[in-house]
Amino acid sequence: MSETTAARRGTSLVRRLAAPVAAAALLAGVAGVWAAGAAYSAPAAGARAATGFGDCPALPEGVDPARWRCEVHTATPKLTMGEITTTLAPIAMTHAEGPLPDGADGQVWGALHSAPTAVPGGLTGTPAGGHAPALGLAIRPEYGGRSDFYTGRLSLRFRLLSPLLPRDCAIGASAPVDFQVKRSGPSRHVSEDPPVIEFSAYDDTFTAPAPEHCGPLTGPLGRRLGLPAASGNLLSYDASYTYRTYDRLP
């Protein structure tokens, strides 16, 4: 794409962004504009995901706590999704796994924690969008409701945060993004007590849907982010995890 074409597209998007903002200001006044911005907070430098065993979920009835363990995974994923290419803020995921009373493998989801990550170029995809607070854009992964750590399956939604976007604006709002994560190589045991295992994983086969519930900017935002995107997407990360059996938890 030529520099001239990029500039023209950026300018047209700025105009599309400006129209609904002006209308909102006329209808609701300056106070309403500021209230809409409450959904967005600039990512803090060096933000890290919460870790520890405080999110360990309750166990199913009838299982042996000594044979179930609570696992806490931490990672800093690299994400390419449509036109988004960024290193996400660190995430921490907690779940429990162990044998069910009938001998089958059991799992219980715990929690996912992360912080917003600024999207370069902001809402417009231009240098101004990356530096003007009103045009800022951040992305934050959230649990999508499905997980299977035995097979590497995980679903996520990606919340989009900006002063100009509604609180429920997200990629995967109706149907989450489904990942089938594969290991990049063997795991490495860093420590035995406490147990710490490192591994690398990726998925380059997932489909990325368009943003939803983003108000008047839904269409322009989808075009800005290159979504939906059926191919060319990548999630990769180096991760580590630790665990405790439930009979050793506080």
Rank of each mutant, 00 (worst) to 15 (best):
Q107P: 00
S41R: 15
P120R: 00
A170W: 06
Y241G: 02
R15T: 12
P99M: 00
V177A: 06
L249V: 02
L164S: 04
S200R: 14
V72T: 11
R183E: 12
T124G: 05
L27D: 11
L160P: 08
K182S: 13
G82V: 01
V21F: 06
G103P: 07
R8H: 14
V30P: 04
A75Y: 10
V190R: 05
A36S: 11
V181K: 10
D64V: 08
L13M: 14
L165Y: 06
T4K: 12
E142H: 08
T94I: 08
G226I: 04
G29V: 07
R183K: 11
Y243V: 10
A31Y: 02
L164A: 09
L164F: 05
S191H: 09
P99S: 00
A138R: 09
A7M: 12
R16T: 09
P116K: 01
A66I: 02
G37P: 10
A132V: 15
L221D: 04
A39T: 09
D238H: 14
A111M: 10
L161N: 02
V72R: 12
A132Y: 13
L17G: 06
P57C: 01
E198I: 09
V72Q: 09
Y143E: 05
V190T: 07
L17R: 00
T117A: 04
A6Q: 15
F158C: 08
I91W: 03
A22V: 09
G82S: 01
W34A: 13
G37F: 06
D168K: 10
G121E: 05
P194Y: 05
T124V: 00
R183S: 14
A25G: 10
A173G: 11
S114D: 03
A96R: 02
F149L: 12
I84W: 03
S41E: 07
I139M: 08
P166W: 11
A230C: 07
T245V: 10
L156M: 13
A111Y: 04
W34T: 12
G103T: 04
A208E: 01
A115R: 07
Q107E: 02
W109S: 07
L135K: 00
S231Y: 07
P127G: 01
A49I: 03
A50V: 10
L59M: 08
P211M: 00
L27P: 15
Y246F: 08
D178E: 15
V14C: 15
D64P: 03
G125H: 01
G10F: 00
P194W: 03
M1V: 15
K182M: 12
G130T: 07
A45D: 12
D148C: 14
G54C: 01
K78P: 15
R146Q: 15
V21S: 10
